[in-house]
Design a protein around this nucleic acid. Structure first.
Lengths: 349, 349
DNA sequence: TGGTAGCACTCACCCCAAAAGAGTGCTAGA
DNA sequence: TCTAGCACTCTTTTGGGGTGAGTGCTACCA
């Protein structure tokens, strides 16, 4: 963005601020009257024409005001806007809401998502990829039918995952119980990151080589765990908040948006990207990212949370392009930070 | 409903059928032209006037056609309508959809809910109260903090429940493991209906009276199980289908409906009622039941499913008052029946 | 007495034209 | 380089007339 004078920036900022507030195209008169700079509407019009030429603004029709383009918003976010700091009471509110839900990780994450949605009046979202589960805690095999086995996997931080596998040979519950006893002992407190390796080692041990049962148990565990930790948990709360936004006042759009949410896998993929690139706060504006068709007019503010240095997951807020970023960004930032803290504590215990 | 002649019934039926199809007020001309009875519009108008006086029809404004009232719909459902039988291929479709999801109970129930929603093009719902869980299978205590304990409870049919309790004394994971070992042995395969009694017996045994640890374990288990089985699981799928109905085309209504869904407890209470009164298919029309404010213009078609003779849960379809009952009723009925069968099989295994 | 035909009447809805309002671009002047 | 003024454009609102669906009523017929 070369050649943006101070005045250009001020005008752009004023337009975006106003647009975020009202959702309507904003005209030169409005800006002039706002008094952030003492120039006449005509002058502002000139600046606006320049900004439009640069692709930062857009005019829905000849005699309407301007609205920012995605490019304009991006520029604003990157180099003009400065987020407001949260005051103590706001931080307290977040802290309270999270600390009062100590039940288990799943509830903590869902609670976080709900908190974000309520506080930002948009949809809140939390992604928790299973790989990040701390350590193996317990496995349980359950016989559903002669060949059908359900595997229940519990991680040390209390998340539960269940899978379903088929064994090649008929198998009794008694045998399964032996399997789980064996595996539980073997993997007690092993971090998931090392589970696979540990199983491989064991498979090559003498015991496994000569004991068909044990070898089978290992295979089943391997299978189930692999499947389990590839999965992700995603918590999306407060979707109906989005309906309050006038930009989604039309039934068509509303449906489009809500239907897009039904397919969680797309959402997961998107957030996963964010997690990989995780360098603090991230903002994806509709038309930019891999947010496809349905999401054109949405935007996502997200931040990773971590335990120590390893990122665990992502949380964020989804709403229309026109969001109060200066407020939402610090909220997302602080929530991520605080959730990280809480997970640290949970781990120590 | 005294004094409904055959002709009155025919007219009422014709009006309702047409209204269900089009969603518009229906006029005398339309009915006359439909040819179900060879009378002139004028005659039909007289009948309509009678029906309106009885409170079975309603006229939005002077020069509009009639739409059925809730009272009219109720009468129609109770004594005029006869549901169409499902043909073989329709039954097959339901069977296939359910049999291809053998994973676990939770998935089966969610799948059922989704099936109902897709097949009826409305929202599908399945309620599974925890009391109905077959038998105790496994319990696991997990130490989260010095006094915080997470309890994971697995039932024989593979549903998982987790609760969180606080112990009065500090407790180690080792002790907890002993507890779970003990409880697991004690309650192996005991039906939940008898778990409480079994625990009480054990508490009075010598072993528990003199062993503080064991007594504590029993108390914890009792606590957790009590809490767990009071809970209900509810699966609501396909909410966005409702948005296709022209009666919810207005944003206000749409939001009202969707927000009503966010509070699941109300839904659970309602379905619970249905379960208690469970004598086959049940239909609750908006203004009749305890469906409060938000649900005025909705209706629920539900049926219990059972294992053997004991009802396990309820499934159904939620949609606008104007639904194709003659189609939806047999679908709900058959699905409930077939789900019952599947659960029988699952239990035998 | 029950059914039918005719007719005047009532609304909701659509369409169109006119007016209002918001905002622009351009030009001339300080 | 900024400002004031003005003509112009385009959307939105408003109001009125026409249209059509549907009714209620009355008179008439089998």
């Amino acid at each position: 963005m070369i050649g943006l004078t101070q005045r250009d920036q001020t005008v752009l900022e004023a337009i975006i601020t106003d647009y975020i507030e009202t959702g309507e195209p904003v005209g030169s008169r409005t800006i002039s009257k706002r008094g952030v700079m003492n120039v006449s509407p005509a002058t502002i019009r000139n600046v606006m024409a320049d900004l439009e030429e640069m692709g930062l603004l857009h005019q829905p029709h000849t005699s309407a005001g301007r609205i920012p383009t995605v490019k304009g918003l991006r520029l604003y976010l990157d180099s003009i806007m400065r987020s407001r700091q949260l005051v103590g009471s706001e931080k307290d509110r977040i802290r309270d809401a999270l600390q009062n839900r100590p039940q288990d990780i799943a509830q903590l994450l869902r609670g976080t998502s709900r908190l974000l949605s309520q506080y930002c009046r948009q949809a809140g979202v939390v992604l928790w990829p299973k790989q990040s589960i701390a350590s193996f805690k317990h496995i349980e095999f359950l016989r559903l039918g002669p060949f059908d086995i359900m595997v229940i996997l519990i991680s040390k931080d209390g998340l539960i995952h269940q899978t379903h596998i088929e064994s090649r040979d008929e198998i009794s519950q008694g045998e399964l119980d032996k399997h789980s006893l064996y595996i539980n002992e073997l993997l007690q407190n092993v971090p998931f990151s090392r589970v696979k390796q540990r199983i491989r080692e064991e498979m090559e041990s003498e015991k496994a080589l000569f004991d068909r049962l044990f070898s089978m148990a290992l295979q089943m565990a391997n299978h189930a765990i692999q499947y389990a930790i590839e999965d992700s948990e995603i918590y999306i709360e407060g979707k109906t908040n989005l309906l309050d936004n006038p930009e989604f006042a039309h039934v068509e759009q509303m449906r489009r948006i809500l239907q897009a949410f039904e397919d969680k896998s797309k959402m997961i993929r998107l957030l996963d990207e964010t997690l990989k690139a995780s360098t603090g706060i991230q903002i994806v504006l509709g038309a930019e990212g891999e947010l496809l068709g349905e999401w054109q007019d949405m935007s996502l503010v997200s931040a990773p949370f971590r335990r120590g240095d390893t990122p665990l997951g992502v949380l964020g807020v989804i709403g229309p392009l026109r969001m109060d970023y200066s407020r939402i960004i610090p909220i997302v930032e602080f929530t991520a930070q605080f959730l990280s803290q809480m997970l640290d504590i949970a781990d120590e215990a």
